[in-house]
Design a protein around this nucleic acid. Structure first.
Lengths: 360, 360
DNA sequence: CTGTTAGCGCTTTCAC
DNA sequence: GTGAAAGCGCTAACAG
């Protein structure tokens, strides 16, 4: 089956790791045809006779020929790969989006290269650098919470590299953006709390400048306003999202703070996956009863929501879909025949799932 | 800053997406030197004068030169990328391992390309095919639960592609393997249950033939044996791991079955992340009190264990470390000067975390 | 110390 | 209908 016929060119010192890959040259030699004929045959060119095509195809198949991605990429100036920059792999919500990205990209025969910014703007630049140098055809990015400067991304874009933002959006770059309707999600969650009789609703958010945070804050404020509840600034706290330890500390401090207020909150609306689940764990650990002492609803996509103590009311985002759409937008940009100048921002619907944590 | 000086070669129809990348040629032209001189200067060759090096380096830096990965890869027969095949991205445990792999690989300037088998052996082959064709320097794989035939992987290995197994190991291929001490983890968990007074301990496992399942089963059996508890085969059930829906059905059926036995189990030891958390959710949903009606301990790395209802006793695996070590083993194989024939299997320690779900 | 040259695997004119 | 040749960006052997 595996023959050694064509590997005489590989008699080099490091032959040990040389993949015995069949090349066009090998096929050409074996079939007594020229390399270009083989190439054309495999690409089903009209210039080649059916007979030859058949011969070439069958030989190629039998010998497991598959084109060298790098050679093709070098030649064509494209790599059929896209770079994906996320805050972290170890994040359920991110994983769901990546799954969506992967699903769409694989279908279109694009490879994805995932890099983690770990919420650091500097690390993010490093990722972008590597991806750019690596020759990706486009970038899909959900910026780090610490990112304030999008100029590098804009530079890459100006240099001709298509960029699409997903999940965490920003006005500092003009391109396709795919996110959730964060305002609406926050609004719905807050209204849900109010309609269930909660009046003193705290809001725990992140310290990022990304729109994701302000939109959620605004949704919360608007709901209060619409229901004639006075916004109490002291019920708004934000947590440092730059690293897990800091987040944990800030969360703990926030809860202590809330519980020391003369008018304690009777409910908390949390703005992100990490904050929501950690907050619940902390409330439990600190001995507060949810929802007895304080109700809790938060943005999170964890599929463990119903197994939590108590089952956690959540605002869900269509993460998988978000990934798919982002990938489709990027690939459409990559494959566009003419430069695209009209960009769109797509907002996907969120969904409130009511569970025990907000049922008095 | 961004100059248009060197892009006259790119006047093609699809110039719109052409990255204005500086090449060796461009630098050579600009500095009036030869391409090879530039190449050597950038690679800090001893053949080049300090003066020239300085000039080249500064020009390169200023113009953001970065070598074309594909050209370099094509030339050197290496891509400095490694393929990673996992069952799913959307799996907390997997994400932690990927994080470890990424951490080590990034340090060594290897790019990782992640593909999902979705527990399908067929899909797995497709992934391997793509990775092989894509020119990765090596493969890191945690086989799909449905995989029974490792011959394709062996073929790739024989063709010179280094392969390292992680997490889910198999005897059907001889290579470096990095996993957890599953026997010991299962043993410890079962002993913990017994020592806490549980006598009728059920074991919920997967339907895979991978050693990960049998090792855990054996650890469970050995613990029973060592503590003089008769192994009751009817307390062993396995769930179809090929898709989430099937898994859920099987789990539900298993719990129904357990609870219908004349001698009900008073504790369950679950073998995997998915089974452990889903089992808890189902027990809650079906109205059983944990640990009152039945105690539960399971393999899982979820960081939500303490927020679950009740807090879940777990067997933890050093997932991040496992990823790191697997990556290091693979890279050592890739960079080995002589063919490696002696392989090792590394077993990392697991840790039992006792929480409320096993406290009578 | 620097330059010339060949070639990695592929596509793509342009000849025949 | 087929083939020769150039070239994508890079490295390395060999000349000078």
């Amino acid at each position: 089956m595996a023959d050694k016929l064509f590997n005489d060119t590989f008699d080099l010192p490091d032959i040990n790791h040389m993949n015995k890959i069949v090349t066009l040259k090998d096929i050409a030699k074996a079939l007594n045809l020229s390399i270009s004929t083989i190439s054309k045959a495999l690409n089903d060119s009209y210039e080649i006779s059916e007979d030859t095509k058949k011969k070439v195809l069958s030989y190629a198949k039998y010998h497991h020929y598959s084109p060298n991605r790098m050679a093709k990429g070098l030649k064509e100036g494209k790599s059929r790969s896209i770079g994906v920059v996320v805050c972290s792999l170890e994040n359920n919500f991110v994983a769901q989006m990546l799954d969506g990205i992967d699903s769409y990209s694989s279908n279109k025969s694009y490879q994805i290269i995932i890099m983690q910014s770990k919420e650091s703007a500097q690390q993010e630049i490093a990722c972008l650098d590597l991806l750019y140098a690596g020759g990706v055809d486009g970038i899909l990015i959900s910026p780090a919470s610490q990112t304030v400067d999008f100029s590098y991304l804009v530079t890459l874009q100006k240099a001709g590299l298509p960029v699409v933002l997903f999940d965490r959006l920003s006005d500092h770059i003009d391109t396709h953006k795919v996110g959730a309707d964060n305002f609406r999600g926050a609004y719905d969650a807050t209204v849900h709390l109010i309609d269930n009789g909660y009046k003193n609703i705290a809001h725990l958010n992140t310290n990022t400048i990304l729109s994701i945070a302000t939109e959620r804050l605004n949704g919360y404020k608007q709901a209060l306003y619409d229901r004639n509840i006075t916004y109490r600034p002291e019920l708004l706290r934000s947590c440092d999202y730059s690293n897990p330890k800091k987040l944990h500390q800030d969360l703990e401090a926030a809860i202590h703070y809330y519980m020391s207020l003369e008018v304690r909150p009777d409910a908390i609306f949390t703005a992100t996956d990490q904050i929501s689940t950690r907050c619940l764990a902390l409330l439990n650990k600190m001995g507060y009863h949810v929802p007895g002492d304080v109700a809790l609803i938060g943005f999170t996509n964890t599929d463990l929501a119903d197994a939590l103590n108590p089952a956690l009311s959540t605002v869900n985002q269509p993460a998988f879909e978000m990934g798919q759409i982002a990938a489709s937008k990027l690939i459409s940009l990559i494959e566009a025949k003419i430069p695209v100048t009209e960009f769109e921002t797509i907002m996907l619907e969120t969904k409130v799932n009511v569970r025990a944590s907000t049922q008095k």
